[in-house]
Simulated assay, not measured.
Amino acid sequence: MRITQGCFSYLPDLTDEQISAQVEYCLSRGWAVGLEYTDDPHPRNTYWDMWGHPMFDLNDPKGAMMELDDCRKAHGDSYIRINAFDSSRGFETVMMSFIVNRPKEEPKLHMIRTDARSRSQNYSWDVVRR
Score class of each variant (00 low, 15 high):
R2F: 06
R2D: 02
T4E: 03
G6E: 10
C7A: 15
C7T: 13
C7S: 15
C7V: 10
F8M: 08
F8R: 09
S9V: 14
Y10G: 15
Y10S: 14
Y10N: 14
L11W: 14
D13V: 15
T15Y: 09
T15Q: 01
T15L: 04
D16A: 01
E17F: 11
E17R: 10
E17Y: 00
E17C: 09
Q18G: 07
Q18K: 13
Q18S: 09
I19Q: 03
A21V: 02
Q22P: 03
Q22M: 11
Q22V: 05
E24K: 01
Y25W: 08
Y25N: 02
C26F: 01
R29N: 02
R29E: 05
V33G: 02
G34Y: 01
G34F: 07
G34C: 07
L35D: 01
L35A: 07
L35P: 03
L35N: 08
Y37L: 03
T38P: 06
D39W: 06
D39V: 10
D39E: 08
D40I: 02
H42K: 14
H42I: 10
H42Y: 10
H42P: 05
H42N: 09
P43F: 11
R44N: 13
T46M: 15
M50A: 14
W51V: 11
G52Q: 09
G52K: 11
G52D: 08
H53E: 08
H53I: 13
P54F: 02
P54D: 07
P54I: 04
F56P: 06
L58T: 00
L58G: 06
N59H: 00
K62D: 03
K62C: 04
G63T: 03
A64T: 02
M65W: 05
M66N: 13
E67H: 14
E67T: 08
E67D: 13
L68Q: 01
D70S: 13
C71E: 04
R72N: 11
R72Y: 10
H75C: 14
H75D: 09
G76V: 02
G76M: 08
Y79K: 02
I80T: 12
I82R: 05
I82N: 05
N83L: 14
A84G: 00
A84T: 09
A84N: 08
F85R: 01
F85K: 05
S87I: 08
E92P: 06
T93P: 08
M95C: 07
M96K: 06
S97R: 13
F98M: 10
F98D: 12
I99E: 02
I99T: 12
I99W: 03
V100L: 04
R102C: 10
R102M: 11
P103F: 08
K104Y: 11
K104S: 12
E105M: 12
E106S: 07
P107T: 04
P107K: 03
P107C: 01
K108F: 07
L109R: 00
L109F: 07
I112D: 00
I112K: 01
I112W: 05
R113D: 09
T114G: 04
D115T: 13
D115S: 14
R117A: 15
S118C: 15
S118H: 15
R119K: 14
N122Q: 13
N122A: 14
S124W: 03
W125D: 04
D126H: 04
V127T: 10
V128I: 07
R129Y: 12
R130E: 14
R130L: 11
R130N: 15
